[in-house]
């Protein structure tokens, strides 16, 4: 395919960064105003004392809210809406939760190992009632390690698009189209990293994150099916329809 010009890369970076900021759910200014307020001990205990199914439902609702912003992000990415509808659905079904985990580092307080959740900053212990401590720990570890790269908003935007436009997803009908889009997005990501004078290893570190994201998402699916085996009615009647559609 014809070489991508510098101007085209700049244009792609601009479009994807703008799409990211328009759909990022929490603006940086909002985050700063929140002054990283964490849950008080009695609030933590009230989450811990929730029945398992109630905490699962709350988390499913929060994940679904975040995913809807990711869908809007995807719709604004140059070229995504030109893909066939099947592939748009395949990419979002497989990648939306991965982008949610990437975006999580924007609302993560590394010093206190806490993530913005349900109004305040929550440590892993808030999620104890889920019965998924191993997965929660891995998700927090991932957020902390992504935070340590101190990505800028445009770097995060490009990395999110790169994760979403994965040409190796199964069930893609026009794999080549997605490959072209992903390659251009990767070039744009490299372009941004160079423009921001990032050291060389950052792109490779980001590539390694992709494998971790895949693992986190498959473990989420495993935990969900284990939960649903015990509480089939709760999932059917109380979980958000979009969540069930994506992960059911």
């Amino acid at each position: 395919s014809p070489p991508v010009s510098m101007a085209e890369l700049d244009h792609l970076v601009q479009i994807i960064s703008k799409s990211h900021l328009e759909t990022c759910q929490y603006l940086r200014e909002e985050l700063q105003q929140m002054s990283w307020q964490s849950f008080l001990q009695d609030e933590v205990e009230s989450y811990q004392n929730k029945p398992r199914e109630a905490m699962w439902q709350l988390c499913a609702v929060k994940i679904t809210e975040a995913i809807q912003y990711v869908v809007e992000f995807a719709k604004r990415i140059d070229g995504f809406m030109d893909l066939c509808q099947n592939d748009q659905i395949v990419l979002l079904k497989a990648g939306s939760l991965e982008v949610v985990f990437v975006r999580m580092c924007r609302v993560f307080d590394s010093q206190n190992n806490a993530v913005y959740f349900d109004g305040k900053f929550a440590g892993p212990d808030v999620f104890r009632a889920l019965g998924c401590d191993d997965l929660i720990t891995s998700v927090f570890d991932f957020a902390k390690s992504l935070c340590s790269l101190h990505l800028t908003e445009d770097e995060l935007a490009l990395f999110s698009a790169f994760v979403l436009l994965s040409a190796d997803r199964s069930w893609l009908q026009e794999k080549l189209q997605v490959e072209k889009l992903q390659q251009k997005t990767q070039l744009a990501l490299q372009h941004v990293l160079q423009k921001n004078h990032r050291e060389d290893g950052v792109l490779n570190k980001l590539r390694c994150k992709v494998a971790v994201l895949r693992s986190l998402c498959s473990r989420h699916t495993e935990k969900l099916s284990a939960f649903r085996a015990v509480y089939p009615d709760i999932v059917r009647t109380h979980f958000p329809p979009l969540y069930k559609e994506l992960f059911g």
Binding site: Q68, V71, E72, E245, L246
Partner: peptide, 16 residues
């Protein structure tokens, strides 16, 4: 597409 009606609808909606 049939199995993903909600996602399909979200994709059809104008970018809100």
């Amino acid at each position: 597409k049939e199995k993903h009606k909600i996602l399909h609808q979200l994709l059809q909606n104008s970018t809100s």
